[in-house]
C-alpha cells in the first residue's frame, strides 16, 4: 500500500512536468507549476508521516518527551509551510507575466506569440 501511495505521488509529479513541457498555453503552464508544487509538497509530507501519529502540537498537560514518541515528523512540515506561501507568490508572478503577454499579443498561445514577434 505504501509503495502504491508513493508511486501515485510520483505520477502526479509527472503530470505536472508533462503540462510544463508539452503544453503551449500559458494558463496550462501555470497550472502545471501548481500541480508540480502539490506533488512535491505531498511527497515531503508523506516522507514525514508516522503510522497512527499525532500532529506535532503539544496538548495541555503533556511534556514534549511524551509527544515525541507519537508525533509525526515536524521538520518537513515546517519546510512545506514556507513552500506553500512561496508557491502562491510564484503563481501571482506567473499570472502577472501572462496578463502582460496577453495585453501585448492578444493571445495565451506560446506558438502565436513566437510567430507574432517577427
Amino acid at each position: 500500500m505504501g509503495i502504491a501511495i508513493y508511486m501515485l505521488t510520483f505520477l502526479l509529479l509527472l503530470i505536472g512536468v508533462y503540462a510544463l513541457v508539452a503544453k503551449k498555453n500559458l494558463v496550462r503552464i501555470i497550472m502545471g507549476i501548481a500541480i508540480l508544487e502539490y506533488a512535491v509538497n505531498l511527497l515531503l509530507v508523506l516522507v514525514g508521516y508516522r503510522r497512527d501519529g499525532t500532529p506535532p502540537i503539544l496538548p495541555r498537560g503533556q511534556t514534549a518527551a511524551e509527544l515525541a514518541a507519537r508525533a509525526v515528523d515536524p521538520l518537513p512540515q515546517a519546510l512545506v509551510l514556507t513552500s506553500i506561501v512561496i508557491g502562491l507568490s510564484v503563481t501571482a508572478l506567473a499570472v502577472a507575466l501572462a496578463v502582460r503577454l496577453y495585453d501585448k499579443y492578444g493571445t495565451f498561445d506560446m506558438n502565436d506569440i513566437r510567430n507574432l514577434r517577427g
Binding site: V85, L88, S89, A92, L93, V95, A96, V99, D103
Partner: peptide, 18 residues
C-alpha cells in the same frame, strides 16, 4: 505576506482594466 499579496492583487486588478 498580507501587504505584499494585497498589493500584487490590486496591481493585477487595476492592470486588467487598462
Amino acid at each position: 505576506v498580507a501587504a505584499g499579496l494585497i498589493g500584487i492583487f490590486l496591481a493585477l486588478v487595476l492592470a486588467t482594466r487598462q
